[in-house]
Design a binder for these strands. Structure first.
Lengths: 326, 326
DNA sequence: TTGTATGCGTTATCAC
DNA sequence: GTGATAACGCATACAA
């Protein structure tokens, strides 16, 4: 590797001068600047980030902690984060936490060891000491942390929208799949839906689901129709589960949406390619990722930020698992 | 942050001794070892990786370069890589290349600046100077690089399996969706399928597709049935495209598999949840990720490796978009 | 068995 | 305007 020393020698100046021109700091004569720039180009020199990081005690690295990149919702978040970070010259150290506190701590630890300047996390427990005791800027993504920086979608409203859509389209015996209890956003969706149904005095059932995992989705779908075969409207906890519900409904010979309407949550890319295409509540995942990145960058750079918690809008995406509204 | 100096002071020894016990190198008296260990625990000390990296000129960081994490096939690769790396204490710096040489170069550059010890890449052009001129161990994942370390699935065999499955199940007018020309693995699949069909003297059509993107998938599906409405068997370039084909077929009122059989490629998690569930050629994505990580670790650590190119097996997964075989 | 001193590549402070 | 040089936190060669 070529170092600043090589460049200095090659340009016939001191390392201090080279440093000055690279960082555009302090005075340097036009002629020497050119000499240095030529040397840099000729030797194909790029500064060693590690040395920089050591001296400055901060890197250009950001930690990104997601539960499981394998779950189709997260790649979009990740992509949003990455794109925005990229634009500002930050790199991502990435980890899957599997919602395990152990793994989270472990990762946070190594983030610190690598001098990351900030952290974006989709933890289920923002109030854990692992985060509160951190003196790094942290942005919680797709998670809610009262009064600490976070970016999330309006799940409550999403739940309401879903319930309203089903109601308006004639479902009388609605079943809500209640997502994992320990995930706040999932509960918000549930509460929103339940709330509206109660307001409208509409009867509904609830089926608990303990995970968002592919492997379990079919199980929840089966349970749903087992326990409530008369269901004519399903509010699923996310699109994966909704897909499984759709699959199971069709397997049981039900017509969708005629016998049973289905609404998902997230609007993952595949939703529109399902048959029938899945009606769902859209979360702007990519934009959420970007927003989180943007917020973190502001925090890192000390730019004043007005809104430390950003709630993104959700919207009902009408496709073919619900009736067309007249 | 607490440094090795703090620990040394606290334990009443020199930094060298502390270093020795942390790294289990050189001699150190049992008593002093305990003293140091106590101090480490008490001060909650963990070594600064950046300083280590600077001194040793190598970090515990690995670069991972994928085309687009948003494409459902890649998260599984990524997860496999991450899990394996995690087990050996390596962290991932992650980037999306969008198949752009520019972005690739850019990332590789910053990987180097951050002293990564190795690189896993799904580039379309392993022979680009960006890679050949690198003096880092590189493993190509889901990509083929003759005589350089790589992990990929047997696409040719996959294509053959798909064609054979369709043939055996009675399709007479098969259309193959030929994936992007610049992606070698996609071409292998295509060639495998075409090859077998030609051997069997079975007539087939080809529809070119230029990408694996969601946004385009429906377009290819439409083109397919536009140009070859009589098609009774489709070999799709991957599961996304297959899903779109399925969607389009159903939209056109075709019965699957009775009117048209469909086979995908990859076996992404959602495939089994489609209605009808998608028959496909399975690539062991997660295991491929793990294998790539394993190979890279061996390369990094100088462990002798016997097979530098690992070809993983593919398999036909029979679900509901193909007839049951009697 | 332990401590001192040096260097990893950079940036910043201070003389000149 | 420019150049020595200390310091960032760590690991090692060498001396003790």
């Amino acid at each position: 590797m070529t170092t600043i020393k090589d460049v200095a020698k090659h340009a016939g100046v001191s390392v201090a001068t080279v440093s000055r021109v690279i960082n555009a700091t302090g005075y340097v004569h036009e002629d020497t600047r050119r000499k240095v720039e030529d040397a840099v180009k000729e030797l194909n020199y790029t500064p060693n980030e590690v040395a920089r990081s050591l001296y400055k005690r901060k890197s250009r690295l950001i930690g990104l902690l997601l539960p499981d990149i394998t779950n189709p919702y997260f790649p979009q978040l990740a992509r949003g984060v990455e794109d925005r970070m990229q634009e500002s010259g930050f790199r991502l150290i990435f980890g899957n936490s599997d919602e395990s506190k152990e793994k989270e701590k472990d990762y946070i630890q190594t983030f610190i060891q690598n001098n990351v300047v900030g952290l974006i996390s989709s933890t289920n427990d923002p109030d854990s000491s692992a985060y509160t005791s951190l003196d790094l800027p942290v942005v919680f993504l797709d998670r809610i942390a009262s009064d600490r920086p976070s970016v999330y979608a309006d799940g409550r409203e999403g739940g309401r929208l879903a319930a309203q859509a089903l109601m308006e389209r004639g479902s009388k015996r609605i079943t809500i799949l209640q997502g994992p209890q320990h995930i706040r956003t999932a509960q918000d969706r549930f509460r929103g839906a339940a709330e509206l149904l109660e307001d409208q005095a509409i009867d509904y059932h609830v089926v608990r689901t303990e995970s968002f995992a592919f492997a379990d989705a079919e199980k929840w779908a089966r349970q749903l129709f087992d326990q409530h075969p008369e269901t004519d409207g399903v509010i699923a906890s996310n699109d994966i589960v909704a897909t499984a519900v759709l699959h199971e409904a069709i397997r049981l010979g039900k017509k969708v949406p005629d016998d049973v309407q289905v609404i998902g949550f997230d609007d993952i890319p595949l939703s529109s390619l399902l048959s029938p295409a899945l009606s769902t509540i859209r979360q702007p995942a990519y934009d959420m990722g970007r927003a989180a990145a943007e917020l973190l960058i502001a925090l890192v750079e000390g730019t004043p930020v007005v809104n430390r918690t950003i709630q993104m809008p959700v919207a009902f995406v009408e496709r073919d698992t619900t009736h067309k509204k007249r």
